[in-house]
Amino acid sequence: MTTQTLATMTALPTAREDRPTLAVVEVTRSRPDRPEYHAKVQTLNATVVDAGTAGGWTVVRLAAADLDPADLLDLTDSADAVVIVGGEDIDPRFYGADSGYEGETVHFTDADAGQIALVQRAAERGTPLLGICRGLQIINVALGGDLVQHIDDGIHRNVGVPIDEILSTHAVVLRSTSTLAAALGDTRISVQSAHHQSVGRLGAGLTPVATAPDGLVEAVEHRTAPITGVQWHPEAPDAPAAQLPLLLASLQNALTRSEAARAA
């Protein structure tokens, strides 16, 4: 596997000429107090890494909580594209809200700050970026939006079950004119999700491009930068097999378009 972890790297590797570099940025590599949750998250994150490698990327995996935000920016400075994956709630101070809400998880403030900075830089540079679950929420907060701190249980996650059964299957309708619909080849798809928060006020430059049956925003796109966030987990074991490869391929397509525009 063409992958490096924080423990072995000091900078992004030099990609082969035919392999662009993909930074997969997770929250943390250590949750000793929550082993079952950690194992689930690690399985999902490893699936993104494996899919990136299979899709032709040189993949670098980084844990934002284990780095200063400035170091995370330095280590990803030459990345061709970024994926921000799932994890804990974002500290509400980053979107002007209070703690103490229902279902609140632990917060990793350095991870929040680092990932927010990654999104802001991607928007400025036009770096292709995909946010998955928490990653969508990071995108929204980074661009000035906020979050609904707790949503009623229903279709978005299974409650009162072991962690391996928490993912819920439901339909999502995509805007027909969206880049996401073009990438996935359909306007109605089945997804796997497990979240208790959702997009509230949209961040600057973002537009909603997918909704769940209850009307919640399930995906956003930036109007000018190649940034997409999906609230579901395309890397989940029971998700349609093509979803994650197609989303990663859309990052490569965005990179190709960007390189062609610079060369013109």
Rank of each mutant, 00 (worst) to 15 (best):
T21D: 02
G203W: 10
E165D: 14
T53K: 08
A46G: 12
S193Q: 09
A204D: 06
D18F: 02
A70L: 12
A7K: 04
A142F: 09
G56L: 05
V48W: 06
A113G: 07
A241R: 15
V25E: 01
L184N: 03
G100V: 04
G96P: 06
I189L: 08
W232R: 15
T21P: 03
N45V: 09
G52F: 04
I139H: 12
V59M: 05
L130T: 12
T47E: 14
E102K: 15
A264W: 04
D74R: 15
I151E: 08
T14V: 06
I84T: 02
A51M: 00
A219I: 07
V220M: 05
A7C: 05
S78H: 15
G185D: 00
P213H: 05
G200S: 08
G154A: 11
A210L: 08
I189F: 00
Q243V: 05
S193C: 12
R157L: 14
A23Y: 04
R93H: 09
N45I: 05
I227Q: 02
L216A: 04
A23M: 06
E36N: 13
G160S: 12
F108E: 11
V161M: 07
R93W: 03
V82A: 00
D74M: 15
R257G: 10
Q192F: 00
V83S: 06
H150N: 14
V83I: 14
A204C: 04
F94H: 15
V48I: 10
L147H: 13
L67V: 01
M9W: 03
P240Y: 09
R16C: 09
W232D: 12
G103T: 08
A236W: 11
D71Y: 01
T21N: 04
A142H: 09
D98M: 09
R223Q: 08
D68W: 11
I138A: 05
V24D: 07
T211L: 10
E259M: 08
R262N: 08
L180N: 10
A239D: 10
G55Y: 11
L72I: 11
